[in-house]
Simulated assay, not measured.
Amino acid sequence: MYVEVNTSNGIENKETLQRWATDYLNEHLAKYAQDVTTVEVQLTDENHVKGGNDKRCMLEARLPGRTPVAVTNIAVNQDLAFRGAAEKLDRALEHALGKLDREHRDRESIRKDASVLPGQ
């Protein structure tokens, strides 16, 4: 799974942040490694110098042939914003991929009742 980290508004995008985010997401989302090709991380400081709950993390997971799954979390610091967004992404992927699995299982098989041919 490829992880791309983008920052803006006063949050420094250092190599260590990229490595840490990559390691964290690869470990935290390991069960989706076969389904997720890329996770884009966007960290921003919403009101820059004013402080408060203003660190925003948006994570977007890209799945081949499917609509991307995106979540956002806001917290007092970028670590809590990132970890909260990772938890939300885990739940969103579980829901999205579980729903696809259920839809796949619920479809009628072309092999169902193959022994009964029309007109017999």
Rank of each mutant, 00 (worst) to 15 (best):
N77P: 09
A85R: 11
R102N: 12
I74Y: 09
A85H: 13
M1I: 04
D106Y: 07
G65N: 07
V71N: 07
N53G: 06
H95G: 13
E60L: 04
L63R: 15
E4R: 08
L25G: 05
T7S: 12
E87A: 03
T38P: 01
L93H: 11
V39T: 10
E94Q: 07
G51M: 14
T37S: 03
L97K: 08
D90K: 01
W20S: 08
S109C: 03
Q78F: 06
P64K: 14
C57G: 02
R66E: 08
K112G: 11
R66T: 07
A30G: 00
T67A: 10
V5W: 00
A81P: 01
Q120M: 13
N13I: 07
N13H: 11
K88W: 06
G10A: 02
V5T: 06
D106N: 08
L117M: 06
A21L: 12
R66G: 08
N26Q: 13
H95I: 09
P68W: 02
A81C: 02
M58A: 09
V5I: 10
D90F: 09
E87K: 04
H48F: 07
R91S: 06
G51W: 01
S8C: 06
A81H: 14
N77M: 12
A21M: 05
G52M: 01
T67S: 13
I11G: 02
V36E: 10
T22L: 13
Y32K: 06
N47L: 00
V49Y: 07
M58L: 14
A85W: 02
V39N: 02
N53S: 08
L59N: 03
N73S: 09
P64D: 13
P64G: 07
A70Q: 14
R19E: 08
T44C: 04
D54V: 03
N77F: 11
M1E: 03
N26P: 09
N53F: 03
G51S: 12
N6C: 01
E108A: 03
N6Y: 11
M1G: 11
K88T: 14
T44L: 05
Y2V: 10
L43C: 09
V41C: 00
V39K: 04
A85D: 00
S115E: 13
K112R: 15
I11N: 05
G65S: 07
D106S: 05
V39A: 01
N47C: 00
E12S: 10
A21K: 09
A21S: 05
V116K: 08
M1K: 06
A21T: 09
D23P: 15
E108W: 09
Y2P: 04
V41Q: 01
H95M: 11
Q34M: 11
D23T: 13
S8D: 14
K50N: 02
A81I: 00
T7Q: 13
R83S: 06
V116R: 02
L97N: 04
N9K: 12
A92I: 10
H95E: 14
V71A: 03
T16Y: 11
N6I: 15
T44E: 15
E12F: 05
M1T: 07
V3T: 05
N26V: 14
T38A: 08
K112E: 11
G51C: 11
V3P: 00
T38C: 03
K50Y: 01
D113E: 09
K31I: 06
V116L: 01
Q18I: 05
R62G: 12
V71H: 04
E12T: 12
S115V: 11
D35I: 00
N47F: 00
W20V: 14
R107S: 15
